[in-house]
């Protein structure tokens, strides 16, 4: 066993790899922000909304949580054109990520909302606040505080899972690695490098989220 590492052979492809890295970061940020917005709306609908809306959201959540992400992605990218909805790889990747994180965060945020004592809601209502004002000013803040660690983990999971979008040729970090490896055949070096990049990204995201949490929830 003597394999000579030749990282120098990756150098000509630095721009491809950098583009992939940026793509993955942007994909993660956008799907996190939009996905959590979807999740908040979904959780609000399930807990504070009318029953019919809650049931629709429940179907969405179960559908996404019980199917593989890659199948969801393929359905959006390869399946939907049959209905006349043809999306670019990039759009399909973003959409699939948002839909996926939206479903998981709906469940996580719902758990947070349900953990808020009912008495706090009654206190808000007794102060003449509307249901939605109670949700916004009293419930959501407490709910996010409770589920922030779980949500942070889910964001990391989604970031790592985003590697799957390379399968529809969305140009993320994994796609870049595949591209480079198929040209210079330095599979060991390129996947080692990309694995390290994901590792670093995950650790960085975790500490960033932790710092962000401290700022947002500085008070008790």
């Amino acid at each position: 066993m003597s394999y000579k590492l030749q990282f120098a052979e990756l150098l000509p492809y630095w721009n491809v790899l950098l583009y992939g890295l940026v793509f993955t970061i942007v994909l993660t940020i956008v799907s996190t922000v939009v996905g959590i917005a979807v999740g908040t709306a979904g959780a609000a609908a399930r807990t504070f909304g009318p029953g019919w809306l809650g049931r629709i959201v429940a179907v969405y959540v179960e559908l996404i949580r019980n199917t593989p992400f890659i199948v969801q992605l393929f359905f959006i990218f390869f399946g939907l054109p049959a209905l006349g909805l043809k999306l670019s790889e990039t759009t399909a990747a973003f959409l699939a990520m948002v839909i996926n994180l939206g479903a998981y965060s709906t469940e996580i945020i719902r758990a947070g909302i349900e953990a808020v004592p009912k008495g706090h809601i009654e206190a808000g209502l007794s102060l003449a606040m509307s249901k939605w004002e109670v949700l916004r000013h009293i419930v959501l803040n407490q709910a996010f505080r409770k589920i922030y660690p779980a949500l942070s983990s889910q964001i990391i999971i989604v970031m790592l899972g985003s590697a799957v979008v390379s399968q529809i040729s969305a140009e993320d970090l994994t796609y870049a690695a595949n591209y480079v490896a198929s040209r210079n055949f330095r599979n060991f070096e390129v996947y080692l490098l990309v694995a390290l990049a994901y590792l670093l990204l995950a650790m960085l995201t975790r500490s960033l989220l932790r710092a962000l949490g401290r700022v947002i929830f500085k008070a008790r």
């Binding site: 008495g119 706090h120 009654e122 206190a123 808000g124 407490q142 008070a219 008790r220």
Partner: peptide, 10 residues
């Protein structure tokens, strides 16, 4: 006013 106070902790 309630038995359990129900102040908003945040």
């Amino acid at each position: 006013v309630f038995q359990q106070f129900n102040l908003f902790p945040h």
